[in-house]
Design a protein around this nucleic acid. Sequence first.
DNA 1: TTAACATATGAACAATTGCTCATATGAAGA
DNA 2: TCTTCATATGAGCAATTGTTCATATGTTAA
Lengths: 121, 121
Amino acid sequence: MNICSEKCINEAKVNKTLKNFPDQEDIIGIAEIFKALSDPSRLKIVLALLKQEHCVCDIAVICNQTESAISHQLRVLRTLRIVKNRREGKIVYYTLNDDHVISLINMSLDHVKHEIFNTER
Amino acid sequence: MNICSEKCINEAKVNKTLKNFPDQEDIIGIAEIFKALSDPSRLKIVLALLKQEHCVCDIAVICNQTESAISHQLRVLRTLRIVKNRREGKIVYYTLNDDHVISLINMSLDHVKHEIFNTER
DNA sequence: TTAACATATGAACAATTGCTCATATGAAGA
DNA sequence: TCTTCATATGAGCAATTGTTCATATGTTAA
């Protein structure tokens, strides 16, 4: 165990960073959105819905997964208000519901498409 | 078990979405970046480095975590090239290394700060 | 009402994750 | 060289996660 916190700490820099540091609540909120997009299966679903709505069944085909698995993930996305749905008879159609998420995804797509993203790579 | 994939599927819509759908590799790459930011501890580290570099010890103070835990997470971020470091004697300073990530974070901060993000909320 | 079917949900399980604790590494000063 | 200290790393563990399988729900058509 070291005692760095009493000796080596650069108090001025630490305080500067701590000033206006987002609150825990906001941090958790942001992390939650990133978490929703952090699983390839879930990201695929969001990508599938980027340009048009789809029913659960079609999403399953697009994502090459069982409808049950898709349904479970859609629930996660629904809870986070990332998608919304409408029912048409037996069929339930899903759409993206969060402009922020759409922007995040588009930014990331630009990244992998143009690779102008990270100057160090 | 249902046979939706042979009956209810809207082939035209599915094909439209599948056309120009990102490849699996890109999807995993994007998900990886989101995953890096999906853990509140890791997100906090990135937020701490948003405006200036910090040593491991100071990050631990800012994030209120042990230096070991921080070091483990920094390794994850380093592996993903989200942060880079420079050594100055015994002290190692970390900086953000990915402009893309910086933009994603700033977008998310704007979101929680202005709440103009999701029109439905 | 009953059968068929799209979707949702619960339980259970394997896999992954983030932390702690102990120990290793590498640099500075005595 | 030896000690001190900042950081890094490995093993182990509890907690979380994503999937599967079985079953429930709710809608349509017969």
